[in-house]
Computed example of a mutant assay.
Amino acid sequence: MNKWKIKSTIKEITIALVLLFIVSSIISYIRAPDLGSNQLPQIEATLVDGSIFSIRKGKPLLIHFWSTSFL
């Protein structure tokens, strides 16, 4: 009898966790911002050496952010 009670409890916890995951995914989808366009806006930036960088349309862009942290 005790064995069935443990299995039943584990089953109920698993179902609750799956339902919680589904509900949180739905809420996240509803709250997601509307981006409006698949294209990046025109971006121009001044680099450290003073030159100007601009993005060419239609080309892939990879941005890599990095920093060091001193605590």
Rank of each mutant, 00 (worst) to 15 (best):
M1A: 13
N2D: 11
N2E: 11
N2R: 08
K3R: 12
W4Y: 14
W4N: 07
K5Q: 13
K5A: 09
I6L: 04
I6Y: 01
I6D: 09
I6Q: 05
I6G: 01
K7W: 05
K7Y: 11
T9M: 04
T9V: 14
I10S: 02
I10R: 07
I10D: 00
K11G: 04
E12G: 01
I13G: 02
I13M: 13
T14M: 05
T14V: 11
T14Q: 04
I15T: 13
A16T: 14
L17Y: 02
V18P: 00
V18T: 09
L19S: 09
L19N: 01
L19W: 06
L20V: 09
L20R: 01
F21C: 11
I22S: 08
I22L: 15
I22E: 02
V23F: 12
V23T: 04
S24F: 06
S25A: 14
S25T: 10
S25C: 09
S25N: 15
S25F: 04
I26L: 15
I26M: 15
I27G: 09
I27V: 15
S28Y: 08
S28M: 10
Y29S: 15
Y29T: 02
Y29A: 14
I30K: 15
I30G: 02
I30R: 11
R31V: 10
P33Y: 04
P33A: 03
P33S: 02
P33M: 07
D34T: 11
D34M: 03
G36T: 06
G36M: 05
G36Q: 02
S37L: 15
N38A: 13
N38E: 10
N38I: 04
Q39R: 06
L40D: 04
L40M: 13
L40A: 13
P41D: 02
P41I: 00
Q42I: 02
Q42L: 11
Q42Y: 03
I43Y: 01
I43G: 03
I43E: 08
E44A: 08
E44P: 00
A45H: 06
A45S: 12
T46L: 03
L47E: 10
L47C: 10
V48R: 06
V48K: 14
D49Q: 01
G50V: 06
G50C: 08
G50D: 09
G50P: 05
I52S: 07
I52Q: 08
I52K: 14
I52F: 09
F53R: 06
I55F: 13
I55D: 08
I55Q: 13
I55R: 03
I55T: 13
R56F: 07
K57P: 00
K57N: 09
K57E: 13
K59M: 12
K59E: 15
L61K: 03
L62F: 11
L62W: 00
L62R: 03
I63M: 12
H64N: 12
H64G: 03
F65W: 07
F65D: 06
F65L: 14
F65C: 09
W66M: 04
W66T: 03
S67F: 15
T68A: 10
T68P: 01
S69W: 04
S69H: 06
S69A: 11
S69M: 06
F70Y: 12
F70C: 06
L71T: 12
